[in-house]
């Protein structure tokens, strides 16, 4: 564990709770992509199967359980409790066009050809693009509530901090995992455009809106 990874994990946790609190307080999931949340749910469920096979630390176990439960609660709020507020007309990204090729890629390109390892690889590849339905939804409607943009910023920050963590680990432990690194860099790049808008608009106190 190093400070960059810890800060990244906290940022990730913060993102998930910002979203939950936004939905709960406003009693609405307007502007939130349910598809992205389902993809994140798949990511956590396929990656954290090792909860049952390997113990790393109390921290690791607790965080995994929180990530899984919080995401399942978010999915429940979007598709059940506050379903009437779910903007499904604008959540039209074809998520299956991501999941199917990624499943194929995970079978072909992995560290080891075993069930758990392929599911882990699938989750790493899937996480890298899971935010795409959300970003697509924002570009389609041309706007995002300020709190939704805080959510996206915290999520992007988490990815950025993980890259710094990998650089740190490479030099201090000679540890690197090229599957995680390649997918992590792709994921971080997806946020770049958003980061620019966030810094130029939201921090200056304006609503985020995109040029048509």
């Amino acid at each position: 564990m190093n400070i960059f990874r810890l800060a990244g994990d906290i940022s990730h946790l913060l993102a998930i709770f910002i979203l939950l609190i936004k939905i709960w307080r406003s009693r609405s999931c307007a502007g939130i992509s349910g598809k992205s949340q389902v993809l994140f749910g798949m990511v956590f469920l396929t990656r954290y199967l090792d909860l049952f096979t390997s113990f790393i630390s109390v921290y690791n176990t607790v965080m995994k359980v929180i990530f899984i439960l919080a995401t399942l609660v978010t999915i429940y709020l979007v598709f059940f409790k506050f379903r009437a507020t779910y903007d499904s007309n604008n959540d039209t990204f074809r998520a299956e066009l991501l999941v199917i090729p990624i499943a194929g890629l995970a079978v072909l390109v992995n560290h080891e050809f075993s069930l758990f390892e392929i599911l882990w690889t699938f989750s790493i590849y899937l996480e890298s693009v899971s935010i795409m339905p959300q970003l697509y939804m924002i570009s389609k409607t041309g706007e995002a509530e300020t709190i939704t943009s805080h959510y996206l910023f915290a999520l992007g920050l988490y990815r950025g901090l993980y890259i710094v963590n990998w650089v740190w680990r490479y030099y201090t432990e000679q540890f690197y995992d090229w599957i995680a690194i390649v997918a992590g860099v792709v994921q971080t790049l997806l946020y770049c455009d958003f980061f620019y808008l966030y810094i130029t608009k939201v921090i200056k106190g304006k609503e985020m809106s995109l040029p048509a």
């Binding site: 990874r5 090792d50 096979t53 965080m63 995992d177």
Partner: peptide, 10 residues
Amino acid sequence: RYSFVDHDEL
């Protein structure tokens, strides 16, 4: 399995 590929990150 996990003895070979170590995934200690979240």
